[in-house]
C-alpha cells in the first residue's frame, strides 16, 4: 500500500493555508495545516477528485470576431482537461452565437457541456 504526504495550498479563501495531506490509495487519511473545516474539504476534493472549470475559445464562422470564448458549464475532472481542450480546438460554430449557447455537448465524456461565454454577432456587411 502506498501512503504518501502531499503538500498543497488551499485556495478557498485569501489566507492560503499550506496543507499537508496524507493519502493512501487515493483516499485522504489526514490533513494538517488547515485553519478551518473548508481546508480539509478542499484537500479532499483536490486529492481525490480534482476538478477545474476550463475556459478557452472556439472558432466561429462569420462572426464579428474569429473566436468565441467558451467555458465548461461546470468544473470537469482535471484529468479530462487535455481531451476537453482538444475537442474545443476541433469545434466550429456559426455566428450568430448566443451567450450560454452549447458549443460542445458532453465534452470529453464528462457529461458537462461547453457553453459560449459571450454572444457573438455576425460580421457586419
Amino acid at each position: 500500500m502506498t501512503r504518501e504526504i502531499r503538500e498543497l495550498t488551499c485556495i478557498v479563501c485569501p489566507v492560503g493555508c499550506r496543507l499537508r495531506a496524507a493519502v493512501e490509495d487515493g483516499q485522504l487519511l489526514d490533513v494538517e495545516g488547515n485553519s478551518c473545516k473548508r481546508g480539509a474539504e478542499y484537500a479532499q476534493a483536490e486529492l481525490c477528485a480534482p476538478k477545474r472549470t476550463v475556459t478557452s475559445t472556439v472558432r466561429v464562422y462569420g462572426g464579428f470576431l474569429p473566436l468565441v470564448p467558451v467555458r465548461t458549464l461546470e468544473p470537469i475532472p482535471k484529468h479530462r482537461i487535455g481531451q476537453a481542450l482538444i475537442e474545443m480546438a476541433k469545434a466550429r460554430v456559426n455566428a450568430p452565437v448566443d451567450i450560454h449557447q452549447v458549443v460542445v455537448a458532453d465534452v470529453a465524456g464528462t457529461g458537462v457541456d461547453v457553453i459560449a461565454s459571450r454572444s457573438m454577432p455576425e460580421k457586419a456587411g
Binding site: 502531499r6 503538500e7 498543497l8 495550498t9 499550506r18 483536490e46 486529492l47 480534482p50 482535471k78 484529468h79 482537461i81 487535455g82
Partner: peptide, 12 residues
C-alpha cells in the same frame, strides 16, 4: 496532461 496535473500537485 494527466501526468502534468499529478506532478503539479506535489510541487506546491
Amino acid at each position: 496532461r494527466e501526468e502534468v496535473g499529478g506532478r503539479a500537485h506535489c510541487r506546491v
